[in-house]
Structures are given as structure tokens and as C-alpha cells.
């Protein structure tokens, strides 16, 4: 049996936008991700995909329900410790790449290593290896605004891999890319899953992307569909 990396049961989350405008983003969602999974979360906009992603990534807390990452109960984790789990166990890939604009490609990747507690001497070597692996050997010293969208997303992928996390959460990773580059990026992710057994959970509303995943989790109106 495969090792369970993420296990969430009955996740509920309500946002109070104002006194009268209360949004029930999650109404009890169950989700399980095993080691080596390559799953997609799909659903129409407003179905709670992003909220679920934030909760799974410890960026937000559920109102109720349980969440375990790598066998550790996260619901009782104090905020002060969440950053360590985020740094070591979770990798993020965002839609808008979200690199730090003042840092070079290499420095962006190194930064994640710093937060993850990697030794200063090891950080640079590992960041270099990852970027080279992703075909960015000639772009190490470039700042994000000197890179194409696809290149920026590859830097973000390298960054998410830096601390060898238990799971990589990708929020619309191809959302801002043209179809050709989207395919390239998806190929990279699949290759990492295939060859290195990396676990991915990809939020998308692009069905082409979703269908290229091994498993699809459907959400509708804040619940499993």
C-alpha cells in the first residue's frame, strides 16, 4: 500500500466578507493524496479550489475537519510552527510564477533552501543542479523580468523542489502560459513524477491539463462532486 501524504476529512471553511455576505467556500471536503500521485483538482470557478489549496498548503486554516500531512496532524499546529512545515514538506507552484523580482533565478531558488534550513554551502550547488536540470543553465543570473513565462515557471518549479517536499501544490501552473509552453511545463512535472516519484496536486480548470493527470478530484459548490 502506498504511503498517504495528505489526508483531509470534512474540511469546512466560511469567509465572512461583511455582516450579510457570508461565503461558505468549503462545505466538507475529503481528499487523500498518496506518495507518487499526480492528481488534479478541477471544478468551476468559485467551487472552493483555491480555498482547498490554501488549507492544504497551510496558508489558511479550516473551520472544522482534519488535515494530516506526512502523518502529522496539522489542525492543531500553532501558526508559529506552520512556516517550518511549509518550508520543508510543501512545495508551491503558482499561476503567476511569483518569483521575487529583485532576485536572480539562482537566488530565488536559493531563498527556498534558506527557509528550508539547508546549509549555506549546499544551497547554491543544489539550486544550480535543479536549474540546470530544468534547462536554465544559461539563465542563472537573470532576473524574472529577463525571463520568458515558461522560463519563470521552470524557476518556480526548481524552487518548489529545493527542499525535497512531501508534496508539491501547483495552482493553475499553466494558467498564464501559451499552449505550447503549457505542454512543456506539464511534461516537466510528469517527468518529475515518473522518474523521481514526486507527488503533485494540481489545481486547474483546464481540462486538457486535468486529463493528463493520473487522477482527477472534482469539486462542486464547496463539496466533492
Amino acid at each position: 500500500m502506498k504511503k498517504v501524504v495528505v489526508s483531509a476529512k470534512g474540511l469546512k471553511k466560511t469567509y465572512k466578507m461583511s455582516k450579510k455576505n457570508i461565503v461558505q467556500a468549503l462545505k466538507g471536503v475529503d481528499i487523500e493524496v498518496c506518495e507518487g500521485d499526480f492528481s488534479a483538482i478541477v471544478g468551476p470557478s468559485g467551487c472552493g479550489k483555491s480555498t482547498l489549496m490554501h488549507i492544504l498548503g497551510l496558508l489558511d486554516k479550516p473551520d472544522s475537519g482534519t488535515l494530516e500531512i506526512d502523518g502529522v496532524d496539522m489542525t492543531r499546529l500553532p501558526d508559529k510552527k506552520a512556516y517550518k512545515i511549509r518550508a520543508k514538506k510543501i512545495g508551491f507552484i503558482f499561476q503567476g510564477f511569483n518569483l521575487i523580482p529583485t532576485l536572480t533565478a539562482l537566488e530565488n531558488v536559493i531563498l527556498a533552501g534558506r527557509y528550508g534550513g539547508l546549509k549555506a554551502t549546499k544551497r547554491k550547488a543544489r539550486a544550480k543542479t535543479l536549474l540546470e536540470l530544468l534547462g536554465l543553465k544559461d539563465r542563472l543570473g537573470h532576473k524574472p523580468n529577463e525571463l520568458s513565462g515558461g522560463q519563470q515557471q521552470r524557476v518556480a518549479i526548481a524552487r518548489s523542489l529545493m527542499n525535497d517536499p512531501a508534496i508539491i501544490l501547483a495552482d493553475e501552473p499553466t494558467g498564464e502560459l501559451d499552449s505550447k509552453t503549457s505542454l512543456e511545463i506539464m511534461e516537466i512535472l510528469k517527468k518529475l513524477n515518473r522518474e523521481d516519484n514526486k507527488t503533485f496536486l494540481i489545481v486547474t480548470h483546464n481540462m486538457d491539463v486535468a486529463e493528463s493527470c493520473k487522477k482527477i478530484i472534482r469539486l462542486k459548490d464547496g463539496k466533492n462532486d
Binding site: K80, R86, A87, N98, A112, Y115
Partner: peptide
């Protein structure tokens, strides 16, 4: 703000 969000998401502590 956005950068601070990114940094925290990838594991920066509030202290750092």
C-alpha cells in the same frame, strides 16, 4: 505585500 506573501508561502517565518 505580494512578495511577503510569496516568501511566507515558501517557508519564511514571521520573524525572518
Amino acid at each position: 505585500t505580494r512578495e511577503i506573501g510569496i516568501k511566507k508561502a515558501i517557508g519564511a517565518s514571521s520573524r525572518s
